[in-house]
Every structure is written in structure tokens, then in C-alpha cells.
Design a protein around this nucleic acid. Structure first.
Lengths: 168, 168
DNA sequence: CCTTGACCTCAAGTCGACTTCACATCGCAG
DNA sequence: CTGCGATGTGAAGTCGACTTGAGGTCAAGG
């Protein structure tokens, strides 16, 4: 009645069934079982999955998301306070990431203008050769950048999350 | 004389020797060899590595970087035109990423204000349940976001690139 | 001559978030 | 009863960018 099969949840959430099982194994969601062992999800799981997605977009890892979810009293619809608390942290995270990218972009722009093609002394990259270049002057990039990507990850057209060739 | 050992390059670039070998295998850098087979790098490799770093920060994958490097006439110091061409593309990339993050952050902020805790209809996440919620109205997130992180990657204290326990 | 230490190669391991595979079951229509 | 499709499980594979490990070589120093 009010319970959804894994296939339905997959269709509605856009996640592959395998991902849902994985999330369950990781403790992000739970499901009841039929006599036969099939998963039956309450409608609220969709909200939970939406939450997971949002958190992923902010850059949280699954363990972090699990923690965040754990801080929401079981099953209950998150209160305004819950939501505010969580999203405030996320906002800070996003602000950090944005600031780092902006800084990088601006460094790039100024490099175009200044003609310092060497890259050896222009802070855009410049990791350790600062030591060779003498003096601790360089090293302008905030560490958050190092934490950021290898971003292209899903960049290649090949199946990041969208394609989900799983449901064939 | 003017040639650096892998250890020196590692120290000056901040990369582990293993990473340098890997880059060579991937065709990002080349090195001469001594009679005994040891790598000897010209000073210019540092510039090249700085370039690689910068490109990584922008979010390029190694294959993409290899391509970019290939477009720089062999060995020659990149001209102003080269640099401008490349960095313009990077800038666009960064702009995209920044825009996506800003959009996400602002969505977050507006959610705090609007009290729509359900997450089911607020575009912050909302992947496929739009179908369930009837109508194609949702799905506000630009696809660039999906390409972005799972960012936390290096987030865990455990050795992303900094620690480089390689040089022990 | 022997030991270090820096270097070499090739193979395999790591991390995160899943997917894919092989094989077993459930429930139901025909 | 048979067959199909949706599901179940556990194990192993995938991708990117490296690191780690095992086992071997080279040049210099005591």
C-alpha cells in the first residue's frame, strides 16, 4: 500500500537499485522486508534520498552523510532547527570551495594579463619550487583546493551517475 | 650539471618520485637516462610540472592535461598565445564550476529561509521524484554539479597528496 | 670488498561510490 | 507446472591518480 518496491524507489529517485542496496549496507537507509525477503520502503525514503543527494552535491562523503542523518531523530521529519543546523555547515563548506575556485580563477586571469608564462613564480601552481625559488613567499593556494577535485571524475562522458547503465 | 635527478625534482616539485615515474608512463613528462638507467630531468620539467598542477587544480584529468601539453610545441617555452588559449578554456571551466556551487549555495540559503524542509520539492536535491511530484518543474541543478566532486576525496586526513609518505 | 642509499621495474594495492556478475528465489500469469 | 521478471545475496570489478612492495642495479664511501 504505502510501501514501495526497490524498483519503484529506483525509478523515483533516479538511483540504481544497486545503489539503494549499497546505501542500505552503508546504513544510510533502512527497509522493511516482505516474507520473501524483498525490500519495502516507506515513502519517506525518497526524502531521505533527496537529502543524501543534496549532501553529496555539497561534497559530503557517505560516512559524513550517515552521521548527519543520524543526528536527525529517527524517522521524524527534520525540524526547522535540524535543517538550519545542517545546512549552515554545508553553506560554510560551499563558501570555502567557492572562494578557493574564485581565487584560482583570478590567479589565472592575472596571469593572462601579466604575461608571466613561466608558471614557476606565479602562484597558480607553484607547489614546492618555492623552496628552490628561495624564500617562503609563494604557496598562495589555500589547502581547500588540494582537497577539492581531481574533479573531472564524472567529467568524462562515461557513466558517472547519470547513465546508470545498471537498469538495463 | 643542468640535469636533475628524480629525487631533486621530487623535492622541488613537491611530488613523490613515484608520481614522477607515473607521469612519465602517462606521457606527461619525459626524461633522459644515464648509462645506468637513472632519470635525468632538464630544469624545464619543473615548469611542466607546475603546469600540470595548475591544470589539476582547475579540474583537468591527466589525459586532458597530456593533450594540452601536446599542443605546446615540443620543449619550447609556451608563448603568450599558447598560454592565453589554454587558460581561457580553464577560466570557462572554473566559471562553470563556481556558478554551479553558487547556485547550490543560494538554493541552500533560500531553503533555510523558506522553511520547505521536505526537500522533496525544493530543487536542492530533487533528482527524479519530480516525476512523482508531477510535472517537469523541478530538476534545477545544472549537470555540471553532477560532474563536480564527490569532492571530499582528499578531505579525509589520510594522504591525498600532501602527506606523500612516499618519500620516507 | 661490502654496505649504503638512491634509483630501477613491474605488479599489485588503495580509496570512494557504486556497478557487474553469477547464481538462487519469490510471486504470478498462462 | 512452467516460465518470466523482479528481487535477493556475496564477491569481484571499475575508474583515476597514485602508492606500496618485492626484488634487482649502480655509484660512491669506508
Amino acid at each position: 500500500m504505502e510501501l514501495l518496491t526497490i524498483g519503484e524507489v529506483a525509478a523515483r529517485s533516479g538511483l540504481a537499485p544497486s545503489a539503494l542496496r549499497y546505501y542500505e549496507a552503508e546504513g544510510l537507509v533502512t527497509a522493511e522486508r516482505t516474507a520473501g525477503g524483498a525490500r519495502r520502503y516507506p515513502r519517506s525514503v525518497l526524502r531521505r534520498l533527496a537529502f543524501v543527494r543534496a549532501a553529496q552535491n555539497v561534497g559530503l562523503s557517505l560516512p559524513e552523510i550517515r552521521e548527519a542523518l543520524a543526528s536527525l531523530p529517527e524517522g521524524r521529519t527534520p525540524s526547522a532547527r535540524d535543517w538550519e543546523r545542517l545546512s549552515r555547515g554545508w553553506r560554510d563548506r560551499l563558501d570555502e570551495q567557492i572562494a578557493a575556485l574564485v581565487q584560482l580563477r583570478d590567479g589565472l586571469s592575472s596571469c593572462i594579463g601579466c604575461g608571466c608564462l613561466s608558471l614557476t613564480s606565479c602562484g597558480l601552481s607553484n607547489p614546492g619550487d618555492a623552496a628552490a625559488a628561495e624564500g617562503p613567499g609563494a604557496r598562495r593556494l589555500s589547502p581547500v583546493l588540494r582537497r577539492l577535485p581531481p574533479a573531472g571524475r564524472a567529467g568524462s562522458p562515461a557513466a558517472p551517475r547519470g547513465p546508470a547503465p545498471g537498469r538495463r
